Simulated assay, not measured.
Amino acid sequence: MPPIPILCRSWCGYSGGVISGAAGRRMRQATTLFSGLLLALLGAGAAAAATAEPTQEPQGHFLRPTTLVGKIVDYELSYTHAPDREVIFPDSTAEFKPFEYVGKTFYPTRTRGGQSLDRSVYHLRTFALDSVQSLSLPVTLLQGNDTLTVRSTTATVRLQRTAAATATGAEAPVLRQNTTPLPVPTQFNYPYWLAGAGLLGLLLVSLFLGFRRHLRKRYQRYRLRKNHVYFLAQYARHIERFTLSRSLTNMERAITLWKNYLTGLEDNTISSLTTREIVAHYENDHDVKTALHITDRVIYGNQFSEEEAETDMAFELLRNFAERRYDLVAASLRA
């Protein structure tokens, strides 16, 4: 090892001669240790330099040699590396100028023969008017707590022009002015209509909440009047049929209709009560007591009066009583 004694002599300040004995042995040991440390440092530096530098740069190219303004063109970025290396490809936030990012199609890592291949296709478009446009994207390599950015090879694409080229020195064509407005089809304005419908619904809800009690009473009065008119019509029909046929069935139907109407009108249970219980319920009302006694004698005793005035009076008394009870309920709703 010729360089080591020279380094040692330079380091120790010795300019000639040979040191022997214990001093020489200590000198040789120190020289050996220093040489080992120096070689280790040089080897570590070379290994770190080899690790920091990628073995191959990323490859980028356009899948078509030409493109049009605003038309999507695909750019493929690939990188071959060691399987244990962590690689990050650029995303939509990267710098794609003069191109605009539209989308991306990525492929899973493929490893063959001790080499891994990462590949991704970027969908881009351009509105620049340069005849030749180039792009180079960065690839990030993770190395422990540090990162290394490596740019791909530069890829170019030619812009295909659709307008005919003019001769050198020729005047530009004269533009024709046309300011005539073109008809535009009318479209339904959904946002305004939805906003209007929302405001109308809010107004209706506010009115309902503010006048809920009044509206409920008004609706109850409407249903009460409608049911009363229906009762009077049906009651008159049963009486007419009884008058023509003198059939007890028609009389029973008229009395049952009267009981059911009062049950719904006053929310009671007189439809299931006997005549005595109904009279007691209405506190021995003269009209109810008289009419029901007449109808019971006719229906259950089969005792027809020679004159029809008695049965007609019974029907009339029951109708008048129903009219009075209706007026009481309607007055309570108007209060």
Score class of each variant (00 low, 15 high):
N284S: 13
K71W: 05
T67Y: 11
L129E: 05
Y14P: 00
T249I: 11
G301S: 15
L194A: 04
P83I: 12
Y79V: 15
T140P: 02
E308T: 14
R223F: 06
W193E: 03
L209S: 00
P138L: 08
I6P: 01
G201L: 10
T109Q: 12
P98F: 04
F34G: 06
D91R: 13
H228T: 07
G103R: 11
G43Y: 01
Y261W: 09
S78R: 14
Y235R: 03
L328C: 09
Y75S: 08
I299D: 09
A50G: 03
T32V: 07
D287T: 11
T55D: 14
S116R: 04
I6R: 03
M1Y: 04
D296I: 10
A49S: 08
A280H: 10
Y79T: 14
A254P: 06
T126C: 08
Q133N: 10
L175Y: 00
L199S: 00
W193D: 01
R241P: 01
H286N: 12
T269K: 12
S332V: 06
V132D: 09
L141C: 07
D285T: 06
R176T: 07
Q303N: 15
L232K: 10
R237F: 08
H281A: 12
G36C: 08
S92F: 09
P185K: 04
L199A: 06
A82P: 14
A94H: 01
Y101N: 06
R225H: 01
S271Q: 15
T269Y: 09
T80K: 15
K71A: 14
R319T: 14
F99S: 11
P181T: 02
P5K: 09
Y122R: 08
R216D: 00
V174R: 06
D84V: 11
S10L: 07
R161F: 05
Y122T: 11
N250K: 11
G24D: 05
A331S: 14
V298K: 07
L117D: 04
H214Y: 02
T147C: 05
G21H: 07
I299R: 11
T162H: 01
K259P: 14
A48G: 06
R246L: 13
V69R: 13
A170G: 04
A291Y: 12
L207Q: 02
D312M: 15
L182M: 03
H61Y: 15
Y261V: 13
H281I: 02
M313T: 13
S92Y: 05
L244T: 12
A167M: 03
Q143L: 10
A82L: 14
P90C: 08
C8S: 12
K259V: 10
S245Q: 13
G16C: 04
R334C: 05
Y14S: 03
V329A: 12
E308C: 05
G210Y: 02
G60K: 06
V329D: 10
H123W: 02
E308L: 15
Y192T: 07
G17K: 03
T186K: 02
Y219D: 00
F231T: 04
N178D: 15
R112L: 08
V279D: 09
H61D: 07
S10R: 01
Q29H: 00
I255M: 11
T162P: 03
L77C: 11
L37A: 03
A172C: 00
L328G: 08
A164W: 03
N260I: 04
A23G: 08
L318A: 15
A23E: 06
A82Q: 13
L182A: 09
L175F: 01
A335T: 13
A331H: 05
Y14C: 05
R253G: 09
S271W: 10
D118E: 08
P65D: 14
G144Y: 10
S92K: 12
